[in-house]
């Protein structure tokens, strides 16, 4: 999962994980660098390096949401939904991956001493890609061990995501041999293999995020040789009252023109202004969605705005439902 900051990349990643776990996949959600709080909606404070279960096999999602959030939900999530697979999460930091890697190498204790001496830090400062490659190397190792059916990685924000994914190429250029070079090569192989690895880009339906996403998409394909999954457009304002469809099908517009003919009380003026605001915003977002479709020939998954302050498991489950509905059985 990649996207610029503030587009809800982590939320979308978690929702994707729930949707896949429901469909029967054994899913592993990986958080890098630990700022995203992936565990919070699942009642987990902080994900550990070794991993925790977020949703057990056979969980009744509706009951579980009621249990975690303390209240049942009125929308479609209350329908019978059983988690046929399972969802686990873990956090991978470069430092821990390095430690792990050194411990696993034949150098053993000496390597640990090496890490402690600061020499590694010194080299990592000169060749910063090392840390990223080690984190990606850990992901690759998990992929190879068949630990899960699907691994979802919450990558650093775009721009930085690009650098992150380019780290292996950079390192392969700087390092001619040795175990780290081997790691970099294996990571490159993973990234280039579309059967094993794809990038799912997340954006908002706004001018700058869409432009950046298009730029990132082309660069990921060209510079990292990474295949692209459908694009997720998050936080799209729909019609009021959760009615499906675009602003053109909304009856709000006609209500606005009706209301304008009526007596303009203070209240009526405010209602009309609010409706006008929503319609304008919807139209502006739809323009961006169309532009994205025209410039980037990839399928789109459109996720609605969730009007709540702290996203809870119910919101995540509701987004997961929306994903399932759009992705279908594919």
């Amino acid at each position: 999962m990649a996207g610029k900051g503030g587009v809800g990349k982590s939320t979308v990643g978690a929702s994707m994980g729930v949707a896949a776990a429901e469909a029967g996949f054994d899913v592993l959600l990986i958080e890098l660098e630990g700022h995203s709080n992936l565990g919070a909606p699942f009642g987990l404070d902080q994900l550990s390096y070794d991993g925790q279960t977020m949703l057990e096999r056979g969980t009744n999602l509706a009951d579980h949401v009621t249990q975690t959030t303390g209240q049942p939900r009125a929308d479609d999530i209350t329908r019978q939904r059983i988690v046929k697979g399972r969802l686990r999460g873990r956090q991978i930091t470069p430092d821990e991956a390095l430690h792990d890697y050194l411990n696993g190498s034949e150098l053993g204790k000496v390597a640990t001493r090496l890490a402690r001496s600061g020499v590694v830090e010194l080299v990592a400062t000169a060749a910063p890609g090392i840390r990223d490659v080690l984190a990606l190397g850990k992901v690759r190792q998990l992929e190879q061990s068949n630990d899960a059916d699907l691994i979802i990685v919450d990558a650093p924000a775009a721009g930085h995501a690009l650098t992150f994914l380019q780290s292996a190429t950079g390192l392969a250029n700087a390092v001619a041999s040795g175990p780290v070079r081997q790691q970099a090569d294996q990571v490159l192989e993973l990234l280039a293999d579309s059967a094993r690895c794809q990038a799912m880009l997340v954006t908002l339906a706004e001018e700058t995020p869409v432009s950046e996403l298009i730029d990132t998409a082309f660069r990921l394909e060209e510079e990292v040789d990474l295949a692209l999954a459908p694009i997720v457009i998050n936080n799209v304002v729909g019609n009021p009252n959760g009615q499906p469809g675009r602003s053109t099908t909304s009856t709000l517009a006609s209500e606005v023109s009706d209301a304008k003919r009526r007596r303009q009380t203070k209240k009526m003026t405010a209602l009309v202004a609010a409706a006008q605001f929503r319609l304008n915003k919807q139209r502006a977002q739809e323009d961006q969605i169309d532009r994205l479709a025209a410039e980037l020939p990839l399928d789109q998954i459109i996720l609605p705005t969730i009007f709540s302050s702290q996203l809870d498991l119910g919101d995540i489950a509701s987004l997961a439902h929306s994903i399932t509905a759009q992705v279908g059985d594919s």
């Binding site: 080299v123 700087a174 001619a176 040795g178 780290v180 070079r181």
Partner: peptide, 17 residues
């Protein structure tokens, strides 16, 4: 330590550094 590190990341990198 540097020699040790060389076995890990390759001596070219260490020499470059």
């Amino acid at each position: 330590l540097l020699r040790l590190l060389g076995t890990l990341v390759g001596s070219e990198l260490v020499n470059d550094v």
